[in-house]
């Protein structure tokens, strides 16, 4: 009779092997394991089912259960690749991987495009952009009149929509970002460069050597 290990670990639903995720992202295996510790904490903060729900995501960002923000909403939706209303572990790691300093600029540009493509049509449309600017300004303390917002959005559109079809496609977006690189500045989190140094307590639980 074979020997069966008595060590059992209960993983969350949608768990994926760190070796697989490390191969697909800029993270090492032990960093993925550190992210799993973080994931477990976030995914049980409000609803203890091992999956990150939108309110848990927003709670982690704002430390406030009632705080809502359109951009946080968009981030959740883009992290939730399967569009099933929760962020699974693999989605969490792959999405965070895009924010890694070593991730490709192409991936960052594509991720940012999905954030702005509110309705998921494959294009950033004029109305979507107006909606987003209005909503975000409404949430922030910056007060601009509708006329000014409209003028800013229209001017941006004329510049970005180089083929003049009233929507920004991924290639036009790429060219626009290359012209204004600060637009993807938020797409890089230096913290992710070495999670094990920034969060040494997470790494103690590591079971696999890289």
């Amino acid at each position: 009779m074979g020997c069966i290990s008595s060590k059992t670990t209960k993983y969350t639903p949608g768990y994926e092997e760190p070796t697989v995720l490390a191969a697909e992202t800029p993270f090492t295996i032990s960093e993925v394991e550190a992210l799993y510790v973080l994931y477990k904490k976030l995914s049980s903060s409000i609803i203890d089912d091992g999956l990150i729900h939108k309110e848990e995501f927003q709670f982690a960002l704002f430390k406030n259960r009632n705080r809502k923000n359109l951009f946080a909403d968009r981030l959740f939706d883009v992290f939730d690749v399967k569009r099933n209303g929760v962020i699974e572990f693999g989605e969490f790691v792959r999405s965070l991987g895009v924010f890694h300093p070593n991730a490709s600029v192409t991936d960052k540009i594509a991720f940012a495009f999905r954030l702005y493509d509110l309705r998921g049509t494959g294009f950033i449309e004029l109305e979507e952009l107006k909606e987003m600017v209005s909503a975000l300004l409404h949430e922030s303390e910056l007060v601009l009149s509708n006329d000014i917002i409209e003028a800013i959005v229209n001017k941006t559109f004329i510049e970005a929509d180089t083929n003049g079809d009233e929507k920004i496609d991924p290639e036009e977006w790429k060219q626009f970002v290359l012209k204004y690189p600060s637009l993807i500045k938020n797409m890089t989190l230096p913290y992710l460069k070495d999670i094990s140094l920034a969060f040494p307590s997470f790494i103690i639980t590591s079971e696999v050597d890289d």
Binding site: L42, F71, V133, I152, T156, Y180, L183
Partner: peptide, 25 residues
């Protein structure tokens, strides 16, 4: 000045949080 920014810069600047908050203990 907000008026001199393009719409995407305006969105980026008005973002009031960082994903780094996820890592706060």
């Amino acid at each position: 000045k907000p008026v001199s920014m393009n719409a995407f810069e305006l969105i980026s600047r008005s973002r009031e949080f960082s994903l780094e908050n996820l890592f706060e203990k």
